[in-house]
Amino acid sequence: MRAFTYERATDPVAAARIVAGKPGAKFIAGGTNLLDLMKIEVETPTHLVDVQDLDLDKIEQTPEGGLRIGALVSNTDLAADERVRRDYGVLTRSIVAGASGQLRNKASTAGNLLQRTRCPYFYDINMPCNKRKPGSGCAAIGGYSRQLGLIGVSDKCIATFPGDMAVGLRVLDAVIETIDPQGERRSIPIADFHRLWGDRPEQDTVLRPGELITHVTLPRPLGGKHFYEKVRDRASYAFALVSVAAVIQPDGTGRVAFGGVAPRPWRVEEAEALVPQGAAAVTARAFQGATPTKDNAFKLPLATRALASVIAQAKA
């Protein structure tokens, strides 16, 4: 870990200004991912702006009948919120499928969206990695890639976004609210929030320098049955090989997003329109153009089978 300076912010715009104006500055909230990465020098910020004192830890009803979740609401509190459990079951289920109780106590809503990939080559600073060190190459391509991505990836990077909560938020069409150093607010649909790697895998999201997430807003409840099927080698405390977030309506239609396969929660609206025709039809469309490696090709049949499990449970 490199030496760094630290301050606690009391105002969102001031915090945004400091991070925008100081090279090497970063926000820190729960720190559950950032501190680990700093210890192994994958992240080397020179200054940390701690946002935990900002007044962003509430969940409020919106006039439209949805919920507005403060950026600092902990994963534990968000998953346990009665309204979330009742109306947005897929969100609670996706959150509690991730990490461990201790980490969820500390992890924030905004931080969860910003967690970095778990590609093992990203985690080893001796290895080439375009995401960690732009232009150095990608050791994962041609290497051990069982956990890695197969769609939306590029010839520069095949990492995945590793989170669960965002996959739940994706089927709910959540909107991410930010504030920038000028005090301008912006609303970013979650569909647009995480970038596909392309030629710039070092850039995980569309956030601009200093732009701070303040809230995540959920539209009105969708009804239907909510599922988060997370497939992993061990029963807890593991990242998804494949996950399926789904809301299935009584008429057999539904929404579906996949985790563990792409740089972002993977939802293809034309594909989910095929839910009534069954899982194979959905995944055939959703994963059109997929470029799996030898190690992770199993994720394609697995995604189909995991979705079939959800559809069967919805019918049961």
Binding site: R118, P120, Y121, Y123, D124, M127, A139, G142, G143, Y144, R146, Q147, D233, R234, A235, S236, Y237, A238, F239
Partner: peptide, 28 residues
């Protein structure tokens, strides 16, 4: 679940932490 994954190009065990070298947890 337990397997040290060998990178046959660079010659090392890639999954060298407890997030990627999985051992059973209580739920298992």
């Amino acid at each position: 679940m337990e397997e040290l994954a060998v990178d046959k190009r660079f010659g090392f065990f890639v999954n060298h932490d407890l997030a990627s070298y999985e051992v059973p947890v209580h739920a298992d």
